[in-house]
Amino acid sequence: MPTVSFTRMADGTKEDYDLLEPYAAEFCAGLPDRILAAVRELDGPAGGFLLTRYEHSLQTATRALHDGRDHEYVVMSLVHDIGDNLAPHTHSEMIGAVLRPFVRPELVWIARHHGLFQTYYYAHFRGRTATRGTPTGTTSGLTPACPGATATTRRASTRSIRRCRSRRSSRWCTRCSASRATCSSDPIQ
């Protein structure tokens, strides 16, 4: 197999980079398979949860599909936790970067911030504010501005993380709104 002539990128020639181009294209073409493999790798110990991360990913994508979401949303739902194995503290940012070239900006925003939103249910147990998910006294908000988001989409995003009060649980519900006292939808973990 031919190789490039350089050991430092600054020393590469046009011919070197022409040689690399088809290899890069082939590597990129394999990305969907690598992403699906990363989803399958989530099928490990549940770590105290009722579901493995793999089962959670399938559940999330299935619920998005049953909710009539488009294919980009379903894919984002399926792969939203694939960064957990490599970046447990920043997996949301990681999946945002992975999805950015392939889905619309609002879905990148949802994926990038889903870890922050889930702190709504446990932050107060860790000395953080329940509405912010950050250490008490900081100014970072729970709902950072989504590029291109309107006030309506930000309100909808906030409503989607409210607890399902009819179930009196800490599970997530995508149908509760701030003004409703009850919800008939199934809560999402």
Rank of each mutant, 00 (worst) to 15 (best):
R34L: 12
G127S: 10
G137N: 01
T138M: 04
H71S: 10
Q59V: 04
P88C: 10
A130I: 05
A37K: 15
Y121A: 14
G48M: 12
L78F: 07
Y73L: 00
R100V: 03
P105D: 14
H80R: 02
D43S: 05
R63D: 03
H71V: 09
A61M: 02
H114V: 07
H113R: 06
D43F: 02
G30L: 07
S92M: 07
H124Y: 04
V108I: 06
L99C: 12
N85W: 03
A111L: 02
L42Q: 11
D67Q: 12
N85Q: 11
F117K: 03
T90V: 13
F117P: 00
F117E: 00
L142G: 15
P88M: 06
A130R: 08
T136G: 05
H71T: 09
A123M: 02
A97F: 04
H91I: 09
R34Q: 14
A97M: 13
R126K: 14
P45I: 03
F125V: 00
L42A: 07
T134Y: 13
P105A: 12
T52V: 04
A38Y: 07
T129G: 15
L42G: 06
E72R: 08
G127V: 13
E106Q: 12
E55V: 05
V103R: 00
E55G: 07
G83W: 01
H56Y: 06
G44Y: 02
N85F: 02
R53D: 01
L142W: 03
L58T: 02
L65C: 05
R40V: 08
L51F: 10
T90W: 01
Q59R: 14
I35N: 00
L107Y: 12
A46W: 02
D33Y: 07
S92W: 11
M76Q: 12
T129Q: 03
I35L: 15
G68P: 06
E55Y: 05
F125T: 11
L142C: 10
L51C: 06
G44M: 02
D33L: 12
D33S: 12
T119N: 05
T139Q: 08
P101H: 03
E72A: 10
T139M: 09
H124F: 14
A46E: 01
S57E: 04
G141F: 01
Y54T: 03
V79S: 00
E106R: 13
I82L: 13
L65G: 03
R100D: 14
F125S: 01
